[in-house]
């Protein structure tokens, strides 16, 4: 009887690493020496019969492959798989979990401009572009995809923080002491999907008050 070879050591942790809809397939191997190992990547939409070979990721040696373009419909469900072949001809194939970009992607910190004034600090949150293009070709931002709100916090001292938040992109913390350093943190919240970005942090100093000098 033919005993199936156990090549599971060739491949493990085949998964999508996704942030702001940049979808990278990654994997690794339990072997210490993977020299001579080559990997070929295939992908498809859930429900499709055919696996499609990813151009540019056939018989590669690195352990990652960018599938952003191939998984561009963020509402859809995808699978990818890695076929590993060792120098000695052993092979293994492993598949990802079902991947749904809108749910799985993590949100990076927002891009923010923090503008210090004498007695206030203004914060402007910039739209976050994604690699996804709309039908008319323009690039979608995270704000186009999620119903985002922003949470801003200004650390005045160890015991006192100020909070602002909402859906608009411009905020200002008032009634601050001139010539003093503050720490601001800004996060984005996609409420309906229980997602929150890592914080953007800015350290700013209010301007000296020169009115009476």
């Amino acid at each position: 009887a033919h005993i199936a070879e156990d090549n599971s050591d060739l491949l493990q942790h085949v998964k999508f690493q996704s942030s702001n809809f940049e979808n990278i397939l990654t994997w690794d191997s339990r072997l210490e020496d993977t020299s001579g190992m080559v990997y070929s990547i295939e992908y498809k939409m859930y429900g499709e019969a055919e696996w499609l070979a990813k151009e540019g990721c056939q018989r590669i040696t690195q352990k990652s492959c960018d599938l952003t373009a191939e998984t561009g419909n963020y509402m859809e469900f995808y699978y990818a798989r890695v076929i590993a072949v060792s120098a000695g001809g052993r092979s293994a194939t492993k598949m990802t979990d079902r991947f749904n970009p809108i749910r799985h992607t993590t949100i990076k910190p927002p891009e923010v401009t923090c503008i210090p004034k004498v007695r206030s600090i203004q914060m402007i949150v910039h739209p976050t572009p994604t690699p996804i293009h709309a039908r008319d070709g323009h690039r979608l931002t995270l704000e186009d995809i999620y119903d985002l709100s922003y949470c801003l916090e200004l650390h005045v001292n160890d015991t006192y923080q100020m909070h602002l938040g909402g859906k608009q992109r411009e905020y200002e913390f008032f009634s601050l002491t001139p010539d003093t350093e503050f720490l601001g943190t800004i996060t984005m919240d996609a409420h309906q999907l229980s997602k929150q970005s890592a914080p953007y942090v800015c350290r700013v100093k209010t301007l000296p008050d020169r009115t009476w000098t």
Binding site: K44, G47, D97, R98, R103, S194
Partner: peptide, 21 residues
Amino acid sequence: QEAFWAVKDTVQAQDNITSVR
């Protein structure tokens, strides 16, 4: 949604017919 997300990977990992939706 949260009830399903909590078990999604466990359940979907049992479904290896990726060509049928």
